[in-house]
Amino acid sequence: MMPIFEHGGELEKLERLGISPENLIDFSVNLNPLGPPEELLRTLRERISEIALYPEPRSEALVAKLSEKLKVPRGNLVVSNGSNQLIYAVYRALRPGRVLILQPTFSEYRKAAALCGTYVIDFVLSPEDGFSVPLEELHKALESSDLAFICNPNNPTGSLLERELLLALVRRFPDTTFVVDEAFSDFSDVPSSVVGNVLEFENLVVLRSFTKIFSIPGLRLGYAAAGENVASALREQIEPWSVNRLSQLAGEIVLEFEQFVEQTRGFISEERDFLFSGISKVEGLSPFPSHANFLLVRCEALGASSLQARLLEKGIFVRDCSNFVGLDGHFFRVAVRKREENERLISALSEVADGSESPHGPGHGLARRQEPDNHCIVQDILSGRI
């Protein structure tokens, strides 16, 4: 029986089934396919002995370098053990009564709300509309929200809210604190970051991650930019020495790697287009346009879990998205990887679509199906039940 995967990259669960990760191409995890910068790896090897030293309690040196690079005062920045730590810190610091979450999206926003007893308003966007945001309905929902979480670009859809639209929302609803998670913004061709606007809006918090763009998830490193009062409240919720010394060092180093980021952005753009085009040609599969380093795909007949199992037999692991709020069992996500790996994925999907891998033989692959009508749902808020 296939285990339940809460997130991408959970290869240890496959190991328990006797499936070796060494023989898999992992399309479930959204990391830079170019891997960590070689200069970073070399420096970390040279300074590995520093694990015998304490890290700075609040990553002061890294905060100083971030401040210089972003042109944001140090008092507005908080470094953390991964941006996920900040998601939970936001709830503890602000204690919101009600949070609006644009769905489908990263599940930790909801889990953190549950821990603090915050009521969740799931604002579910429709795949039929390309996950576009109906502004009139969103405005109505925001009127009664203390907090709003927006992943931009969004995981798993890859959709992007335009920068000016996002800032217009922040401006229009000053009593709602907007938390904008920009973990994947470095992969986007469209400039959308609002990190430089935190000095203008006290109700804006921006989360950033080093993990995705530099492919260093094992180091756990992120930061928040926010108004000084909110930043101070967040800082109080994060224990001193929570970021290890090598992570702090890595953050200081990679801030200089602007060329690496530009190279990655160009690489991702080209391979994302290639992957989108290839998957679009597979019968029964419909990828959604993306501004990130992954694609969400609708599988129009075969369930995503069944597709996942068949691809595993071919040494390919994809992300079944059935546990995302607002998505059913016919959606899966694939990361953008290198050309040879992307070609292998397209080929494997084509074989499954053809039915040659079906236990029932040819003709039992990804046949077209009729989709039910699934319009945008705003949980409770528009129905007048709350």
Rank of each mutant, 00 (worst) to 15 (best):
L40V: 08
K13A: 07
T43R: 15
T43S: 15
P36V: 03
D26T: 02
V29E: 14
R47Q: 08
P21H: 06
E38M: 12
E46M: 12
S28P: 00
L11P: 01
R47V: 04
N30T: 13
F27G: 08
F27K: 10
I51P: 02
E6R: 12
L40M: 05
P36L: 04
H7I: 09
T43E: 15
Y54E: 12
L24T: 07
K13Q: 10
R45P: 04
L31E: 13
R45T: 08
K13D: 02
E39A: 15
E22T: 06
S20G: 07
I48D: 12
I19Q: 05
N23S: 14
G8Q: 04
T43H: 14
H7P: 02
E12G: 04
L53R: 13
G8L: 04
R42S: 15
I19C: 06
A52M: 09
Y54Q: 14
G8I: 05
S20M: 09
T43C: 09
R16P: 04
K13F: 02
L53T: 05
L40T: 06
I25K: 09
P36E: 01
P55S: 13
L17W: 00
R45V: 13
R45H: 12
H7Q: 13
R45L: 14
S49V: 09
P21N: 01
P37T: 08
I51G: 01
E38Y: 07
L31D: 09
E38K: 13
P36F: 03
D26N: 10
L24D: 03
A52W: 09
E39H: 12
P21D: 04
T43N: 09
L24A: 04
I25E: 08
R47E: 14
R16V: 00
L17G: 02
H7L: 15
N32A: 04
E39F: 07
L11K: 06
L24F: 01
L53W: 08
I19E: 01
R47F: 09
G9Y: 02
L44Q: 07
E6Y: 09
D26C: 06
L34E: 10
A52V: 10
R16Q: 06
L31Y: 14
